[in-house]
Amino acid sequence: MSWELTAADLPDLSRGAALLGTGGGGDPYIGSKLVERVLGAGAITVLDPDDVTADALVIPTAMMGAPTVMIEKVPAGTEAVLALRTLESHLGRRADATMPIECGGINSMIPLAVAAETGLPVVDADGMGRAFPELSMETFAVYGVHGSPLAIAGERGDCVIIDTGDDDRQMEWLARGVAIRLGGVGHIAEYAMSGDEVRRTAIPRTMSMALSLGRAIREAREQKRSPFDALAEALSTTLYSHMRELFVGKVVDVERRTTDGFAKGHARFAPLDAGDELEIAFQNENLTAHLGGVLIAIVPDLICVVDAETAEPITTEGLRYGQRVRVLGISTPALMRTPEALAAFGPRAFGLSDEFFAVESR
């Protein structure tokens, strides 16, 4: 069922999207402010995937690059619409709707800002069900829709079309180089598809789920209940039905560098009492969690670092020494655990030698 989103929904939506972004996807505060600037007192129509007509043209919009850059290089706010219009001109057809490519703080917000600016509806689905660092790591690509042609735009009005046919990895490589030369980030329009292809390849209703998760955390705080119990309950009826608490402790070290268009590094956490330390490796998003040297969670399952008391999600660029945190493991949908999906965004896609195992199995 389709629904209307207003500015009052943005704090809950950005909180839930940041959680699903598993440390990546960009700063949720910046994203919500981009939408507020153009939305005002208006509303955005969010289309259920089942309500998108079969031949509708859906063009997802997003930001790509290193999330660390966004802290100092705030978008002008014009880039995503420019990318959309450039791709529409290249295709010779106007979009009927836009859509996120991933869940994440800013990348759940970019399509909303585009919708508020253009009047387009936003489809309640995405192509990752979380956040991943590379454009080729999409369920769209896994199940037969390719990202090319892609349009990428910068804040100075620069715009480039990249067309690599069905080679999504080459598209990612070229677009990453352009994003670096645009200052570390670029805004993109890609994976143009029909309504039928949305239903076949996308993770459905992730935007409404992010809103419900963010709302569950907030309402639990207001009612003096455990936000972690509320979060587990809210997840239990979704495609992400299993949540495990992996660790409770504090940040004792963060090694982070911006390189090759990504934020890469490791974070180390010490328990509040006696016990083993936890180490998380990340590339924009959290990839692995090792407790005392033993692997306890791995991509594509979600590894989420949140405030130990409030359950507020903490992005990889937001990790700081001394933060008290809980680390949560959340299962991904079955659509993201098939052999085809794991080949695209499982451990081996990140150069890891470990095999995938379900977080709920440990």
Rank of each mutant, 00 (worst) to 15 (best):
E245F: 02
R176Q: 15
G31V: 08
G329R: 06
L328P: 03
L150H: 05
A80R: 05
V251M: 09
S108G: 07
E79V: 07
D27S: 11
V142S: 05
E277K: 10
E134K: 09
T6P: 00
V74D: 07
M128V: 12
L239C: 06
G346K: 01
G127I: 08
T22G: 03
R221C: 07
A344N: 02
D253T: 06
L302G: 03
I152H: 06
I203M: 13
T139P: 08
R348W: 04
G24W: 01
M243R: 04
G104T: 02
T61D: 04
A153H: 05
R256W: 06
A18R: 05
S361I: 01
S212P: 09
I162F: 09
P333H: 08
A267V: 14
D12L: 08
D12S: 14
K224D: 15
G261A: 11
V325D: 09
G154V: 07
L295M: 10
E155M: 13
S236D: 07
A151Y: 09
V145M: 07
V122C: 10
I330M: 01
L213P: 05
A230S: 15
E172H: 11
S136R: 12
A202N: 01
L287E: 00
P133N: 01
D50C: 04
T259F: 08
P149E: 12
P313A: 06
V145P: 01
M207D: 08
A210F: 11
L352F: 12
M171T: 14
A95I: 07
D167W: 03
L135Y: 11
E117H: 12
L352R: 09
I71R: 12
T310D: 04
P75G: 09
E309I: 07
V69A: 08
Q323K: 10
T288L: 00
I217L: 03
S2D: 13
F132L: 13
A281Q: 10
T22D: 01
V198I: 12
I330V: 14
V306A: 04
M137Y: 10
P121V: 07
I162S: 05
T206H: 00
L246A: 11
P339R: 04
Q283L: 08
D260V: 02
Y321Q: 13
S89E: 15
I303Q: 01
P49W: 07
G127K: 05
V252L: 00
P133K: 00
L39T: 04
V178L: 12
L10P: 04
A230C: 12
E172D: 15
L112R: 08
L328V: 05
D260T: 09
L328K: 00
S136G: 07
A267R: 03
T338R: 02
V305Q: 01
L272P: 00
S32T: 13
P133Q: 00
K250S: 15
